[in-house]
Amino acid sequence: MTGNPVKTKRTFREWLTHLGKRIYLEKERYILILPGIVWYIIFAYIPIFGLSLAFRKYMAKLGMFGSPWIGLKNFQRVFADPAFFTSIITTLRINAGRLIFVFPFPILFALLINEVRLGRSKKVLQSIYTFPNFLSWVIVASIMINVLGQRGLVNGILSGAFGIKPIAFLGKPEYFRPVVFATDVWKTAGWSAIIYMASISGIDVEQYEAAEIDGASRLQRIWYITLPGIKTTILVLFILAVGNLMSGGFDQIFNLSNSATLKVAETLDMYIYRITFKGSVDFGFSSAVALFRSVINMLLLIVADRVSKAVGGSGLLG
């Protein structure tokens, strides 16, 4: 800052007037977003300060903000256990796998359903694909035992048709991740496809008509019109998924895992559950883990966003 003070003052005032004008011009927009913003401030931001419990000893009578600071004690406890770091690696491995093996399926579903020519069957099919979304993971897991267990359907077919000895699909660590991905696709892809289908519905129909006239093939149409039309949606969902690499999927892992797959299934959520499930209630500990997770997720999200922008896509963060 080398400019002389008088000049700075004047530009500041100018800037202020300008700002005031801009705000006045956009007053309707502010009114429009007011309810949403107020909701966020009250019901999302005030509770966020609860994360400071990670650095405090909660004393009920002193309140959330009066409780004494204890520094990094909660974090020391979290970091003392080697199993914590193992669980982070496990989480990242499973969730990175999801990005590769699960993420594309809803897009594929949406594209394929969109290509179905018979109006009625299209709706019926699409409805069917959303059904599994309503099954809880407890149910899916018990179905899986009947399908993939040693006495289950798949082993029955394998041994009946090829004489293969029963394979413990659910009891071998090496099958665990594939089972997680497959069941995830089975349960959620049809439901998640709805977002892409909505996005496809928004594509300008004239583009397709023009392509028709030009004699474009079906694949060309998908490649040059449909996919670019939903590119933004794909990117946004992808960035959000990256920003979620440290969390998610507890219900699924919890229900599909068992003592035989312990070592590949202990994600961060599972670790927290294990540490706290016997009933010791420790908000400081939970807050410390939550804060740590959120920070990592945020870093991942920012990286994903920059990368997305660097390769020419549109980022999420504008």
């Binding site: 406890r77 003592s259 706290t276 016997k278």
Partner: peptide, 22 residues
């Protein structure tokens, strides 16, 4: 004590069972 709380998180049944299946 915090030291003891950390040990209480071990799920012995699952850990031992894992050795048996492995």
């Amino acid at each position: 004590s915090e030291e003891l709380l950390a040990v209480n998180g071990i799920q012995y049944a699952d850990e031992f069972s894992n050795m048996i299946t492995t």
